[in-house]
Nucleic acid binder design. Structure first.
Lengths: 149, 149
DNA sequence: CCTTGTTAGTTACAAAAACAACTATTAGCA
DNA sequence: TGCTAATAGTTGTTTTTGTAACTAACAAGG
């Protein structure tokens, strides 16, 4: 039987990645949830606007690979809390620019700082040379497209 | 300002891991969902039973880090489809052993095979020496516990 | 025994996600 | 212009998840 020997499903990459993602992120999730009252999608929208500046909802969706309905609700919630402003574009009145308010920017900066520290702690016991390999691989896996059906 | 320069949130490890997990696993998810009609938790329960043999619900939960309510529902669904059998333990009649039926085992084997091929394809364009580093890091991140509050 | 506490698993209800259908606006083109 | 198609974003409905409360079984000490 020409089967590769002892492939263990606990080493199945998508599973391994999921586990690593959940476990490594759980502690940080409590920060933006409990301390800042943000949902995960809201935190992601916030950090994309904070990191890359004003942009449209669709653009966030493309960058972060989030479905537009999730974005829509996250944006609505962030706006209600006065963390961002929306302004209709003139050249195309379907779309609107999203910009963080001063409060939103402040929250972003605090969370970004926390994220950075958290990240450092996560990487603490991984040798420097392995870190580059890790993030490199992850970036490649992020765009992995296999059999395009 | 003593801030570490240019930390980009798109390199924030939990985010990166999540993205990589979702993107790299999406194609495989369609297999167990569309072709086998399984939910993600169901697939995980199936593969733990297939990989490690008969065990109790709690044990699956501990190994796979899945909450017991999710396990409970997945098990109920798998049983209804005759993919597993449950038998009460005699020495402790609260718990029950879960065992794959013949059909369940067959499905597991097919999916395990598919997973293995999928995994190989995913790793195809990652140099062999980097693969070891990647999986090693992921295993460590899986058990990452920071500030134990 | 009988109380108290713990554990295995289920169920009920609330929160969040997935999916589909919708409005409003623009673009292409006959 | 006026028709069709496409796009930005929203809303409504159904699944799935998360949280908490629950039942049943055990365990340990009085």
């Amino acid at each position: 039987m020409p089967q590769m020997p002892d492939f263990c499903l606990t080493d199945f990459l998508p599973y391994l990645l999921n586990r690593a993602a959940e476990e490594s992120g759980a502690e940080f999730a409590r920060i933006y949830k409990d301390q800042y009252g943000l949902l995960r999608t809201e935190w992601r929208v916030l950090f994309h606007l904070g990191e890359f500046g004003t942009m449209t909802a669709t653009e966030i969706g493309q960058r972060a690979r989030i479905h537009k309905t999730k974005i829509s609700r996250a944006v609505a919630s962030l706006q209600k809390r006065r963390l961002l402003m929306r302004t209709r574009m003139e050249r195309d009145r379907r779309q609107e620019c999203l910009t963080l308010t001063r409060t939103g920017t402040k929250m972003f900066e605090e969370l970004a700082q926390a994220a950075q520290h958290y990240n450092t702690a996560l990487l603490a016991d991984i040798p420097a040379n392995e870190r580059a390999v890790l993030t490199g691989c992850l970036h490649r896996l992020q765009t992995a497209r296999l059999a395009p059906k």
